[in-house]
Amino acid sequence: MSTPPGYFDTMYASSADPWDLAGRWYERRKYALTVAALPRPHYRSAFEPGCSVGVLTERLARRCDRLLAVDRVESAVRTAAERVRGLDHVEVATMAVPGQWPGGSFDLIVLSELLYYFDDDTRGRLLDRALESLEPGGTLVAVHWDHPVPEHHRTGSELAAPLASVPGLSPLTDVRDSDFRLQVFTRTDPADGTPLSPAAEEGLL
Rank of each mutant, 00 (worst) to 15 (best):
R154H: 15
F180M: 10
A61M: 04
G193I: 06
A61E: 08
C51H: 01
S133M: 06
R24T: 15
M11K: 14
V70D: 05
A191W: 09
D20V: 07
P198I: 04
E27S: 06
R28Q: 15
V92Y: 09
T34H: 00
W145F: 15
A36C: 04
A37N: 01
L108E: 05
G104E: 10
D177Y: 05
R44V: 12
S52D: 08
G86F: 05
P18M: 01
D121L: 13
T34D: 03
L33P: 00
L169W: 03
V97E: 06
L33S: 11
A22I: 04
A81R: 13
S105R: 14
R176D: 14
D177C: 07
Q100E: 15
P167E: 11
R62D: 15
T155A: 00
R59W: 10
V166E: 11
F185W: 04
S133W: 08
T122V: 15
D179T: 11
G168F: 01
C51W: 03
L204G: 06
T3C: 13
V141W: 07
F106L: 02
T173D: 11
P41T: 12
R85Q: 13
L127T: 10
Y116E: 14
D179H: 13
D71W: 02
A160L: 13
Y7D: 10
E48R: 01
Y117S: 09
L111W: 03
L196V: 06
D17W: 05
R59L: 15
L140G: 00
T155R: 09
P136T: 03
T155W: 02
P49Q: 00
G50V: 04
A96W: 08
L115P: 04
A191V: 12
T155S: 06
Y116P: 07
A76F: 02
A76H: 01
S133K: 07
P39Q: 04
E82S: 12
M95T: 09
L33G: 00
V35P: 03
L21I: 08
L33H: 12
P5N: 01
V90S: 09
E135Y: 06
P148D: 14
R78N: 08
T3V: 13
G203F: 07
V92R: 07
A76N: 03
L172V: 12
W19H: 00
W19S: 03
Q100G: 15
Y31D: 13
R123T: 08
I109D: 05
L126I: 07
G193T: 06
V92A: 10
V53Q: 03
E27V: 09
M1Y: 11
R62P: 00
L115F: 02
E158W: 06
S112T: 09
A22G: 15
V84S: 09
E135G: 08
H89E: 10
S197K: 00
L67K: 03
V77A: 06
R29F: 13
Y7I: 09
